[in-house]
Each structure stands twice: as C-alpha cells, then as structure tokens.
Amino acid sequence: MTAEERRRARQGWLLSAPALALLLAGASGPLLIVVVYAFLEPGEYSGVEWKFSLEAWFRVLFERDIFDGTVRLADAHLSIFWRSVKLSLLTTLLTFVFGLPTAWFIATRPARTRMLWLFLITVPFWTNLLIRTFAIMEVLRNEGILNGALMRLGLISSPIQILYTDVAVLIGMTYVYLPLMALPLYAAIERFDMRMAEAAYDLYASRWQVLRKVVLPIVRPGVVAGSILVFVPSLGAYVTPRVLGGGKNMMIGNFIELQFGAGRNWPLGAALSLILLAMVACALTIYVRAAARAGADG
C-alpha cells in the first residue's frame, strides 16, 4: 500500500466514522441487549431475572402443561409464524402485480408529467400509517363503504366479513407497501430501453412473451429491490395486522409485542425477535442468490 492509498483509506474511515458510530450505538447496542435478554429468565411482573436460561427458546416451539408438566408442540406459535410468512409473501406478490403496471405507466409518460405521477405515489406517506389503516378499516367494515356499495348494488344480501380476517390484513399491507414496490420498479423500467421490447416484438414474441422474456429479466434488479423492501417490513408488520386483523389474527410483530406487554415474558419476546431477524436474513440470502442465479442463466 502506498502512502497515498493509506491516506485515502484513513480518510474513508474518518468520513464514515459518524455514521458507523451511530449504527454501532443505534443498532448493535439494542441488538446486544435483545440477545442477552433472550437467555435470561422472565421477571415476576415484567423485565428479566438475571439468571441464565434456555426456557425462552424452548417456549418458542413448545408449551408445558401447567398441571402435569407434559410437553406439547406449540401449534399456535407455529401458525403465527406460518401466517406471517404466508401474508408477507402474498403481500410481496400483490404489490408486484399492482406495482408493475403502475411503474410501467409512469415510466412511459412524457418526461414532464412523470414527476407529477411520482409525486402522487408519495402522497399517502403524508398521512400517519395508523390513520390510513383506520381509513381502510372504515372501507372494509361490515357497515363500511365496500359492503354498503355491494349491498346497494344488490350483489350481496348480507355483509361479507372482511375485517378481522387475513384478507383484510393482506389488503391493508398491499396498500401500505405498494409504493415501496412501485418506486424501485419505476426506476428500473425508466432505464429500460424500449427498443429491446420492440426487437422482441419484431422477433415474433407476443406481448406477454415480451414482458416475460425480455422486460422482466432486464428490470430484475428493480424487482429484487422492491421485493426486499416489501417483504422485510411485511414480515415484522405490527400496526396493520393489529388494526385490521383484530386480536386473533396475529403476525409475529404482534406476538412479540404481546410478550413485552400482557404476556410479561421479555425473554420469549427477545427470542422471537431474534428468530424474526434470522428469518429475514435467511429469506434475503436465498432470494438474492436465486435472483443472481436466474440472472446468470438468462
């Protein structure tokens, strides 16, 4: 390493020091606390007892009968995990299905009006998530706008129960996370050279084949980015499933919150948080690997 390179390296470290310090203090610190808590015993009312225990990890998957002490698989917990993964995957898929045409539409507008459309996409961010979620609740309620309209149109005779079901959670999350999918897709499509699509169309591809064989593979980075941006927060979603799913249809986020609140089992909450973290990391690794491999195969 030359002196110049050393100087540059040092400068790089110095320049990134504030950000690194913030990350270290803001992310690693709390994470460390969570890791430690996950291996302690729950306190009487809340908090932790400073005694080492693996009980929290055991309780993630199993439950012990209070009376005879027999051990059973905690299928309630498993179903919460399963619902979280399922709803997050579906949310990612739905935001993609709605986000792709939206992004395509905006990217193919004249440059002058494109900014206006992008601006409109960001409008929902102006309002608090909770308020927007309550607005959706108002739409989906049995006496709400949707059921009211359907009944007035004579399509149904009694309200359909949508609120407090997984469908309601899915609708809510799709709505909330749609911009996170649409924006990276837009960025990728905007850079897409439309002559590629013309070339494919010229070479006997149908419109559907143009999309599948040429457009999607080329805008893949945008699809990957959008999927990550939607899937990760979906998996840990808290507000939307809480409001639209009611108390019963919990997702991991709500289950964790429960442990720190009414459940009064902080170590279990901490262990669940770490499992959520591991799930996200695994999902991302698998997904990015698969996407890269698909990209290499063409």
Binding site: D193, R195, M196, E198, A199, A200, D202, L203, Y204, A205, S206, Q209, K213, V214, P217, I218, R220, G295, G298
Partner: peptide
C-alpha cells in the same frame, strides 16, 4: 425482421440465445 441502429441486443442473453430468440418465439 429488423436490424436496429442501436442493435438492441438482449443484454441478459448469450449470443447464441439472442440468435435463437426468434426461432424460440
């Protein structure tokens, strides 16, 4: 078929797959 001025080759496909594209479609 058209030969475009900018070529418009498919960047994600090999030369052989580019050439095969029309026949595959």
């Amino acid at each position: 078929n058209t030969v475009f001025q900018s070529y418009a080759l498919f960047p994600h496909l090999s030369v052989a797959r580019n050439i095969a594209f029309g026949l595959e479609m």
